[in-house]
Simulated assay, not measured.
Amino acid sequence: MKIKYCKKYEKYVSQQHCEFFNNGLDCEFYNHAYWNSIKDLSEDENRPKWEVNAVIKPYHCNLLDREYLNERNRRRRLYRKSSGIQI
């Protein structure tokens, strides 16, 4: 998981989080530096000094609008129901 630093939240976020919710590379708060893992991040002495283990990941983020996620789940349930997929 690639990790980026987001100036908007002043936290570390996964690259996937930025791509989904913050316009990816076009995001004005995006820092172009990235780390390949939390281990790489914690070893980098020049990193912004925020909590390393508090990486915001997609779908585990209290900054997101819950209605967005609920809508995705509703669509998924309707698809499964209409196609007869059993869980």
Results as ranks from 00 to 15, higher is better:
M1W: 00
M1Q: 11
K2C: 01
K4T: 05
K4I: 12
K4D: 07
Y5S: 06
K8G: 03
E10D: 15
K11R: 15
Y12I: 05
Y12Q: 12
V13H: 06
V13D: 13
V13K: 07
S14G: 06
S14D: 07
H17C: 15
H17P: 00
C18F: 01
F21V: 08
N23L: 02
N23M: 03
L25M: 07
L25K: 09
D26A: 15
D26K: 14
C27M: 03
E28W: 02
F29I: 01
F29T: 04
F29G: 05
Y30Q: 14
N31A: 11
H32C: 03
A33V: 13
A33Q: 10
A33K: 14
A33L: 04
Y34V: 04
W35L: 11
W35I: 09
S37F: 03
S37M: 07
I38D: 08
I38R: 13
I38S: 09
K39L: 10
D40M: 02
D40W: 01
L41V: 01
S42G: 04
E43I: 01
E43N: 15
D44R: 07
D44P: 05
N46Y: 02
N46T: 04
R47C: 04
R47H: 10
R47W: 02
P48N: 11
P48T: 07
P48I: 07
K49P: 06
K49A: 12
E51C: 11
E51L: 09
V52A: 10
V52R: 03
N53V: 05
N53Q: 12
A54M: 03
A54S: 14
I56Q: 12
I56G: 06
I56P: 01
K57S: 13
P58T: 07
P58S: 09
P58R: 07
H60S: 13
H60T: 11
N62E: 12
N62V: 06
L63S: 10
L63W: 06
L64R: 15
L64P: 10
R66Q: 14
R66A: 12
R66W: 04
E67I: 01
Y68Q: 09
Y68A: 04
Y68W: 05
Y68E: 15
Y68N: 08
N70T: 04
N70F: 09
N70I: 06
N70D: 15
E71M: 06
E71I: 06
E71G: 00
R72S: 01
N73Y: 05
N73D: 13
R74G: 00
R74A: 01
R75G: 08
L78F: 01
L78H: 08
L78S: 07
Y79Q: 14
Y79F: 15
R80P: 00
K81Q: 04
S82H: 01
S83E: 14
S83G: 04
G84I: 02
I85N: 08
I87G: 11
I87K: 02
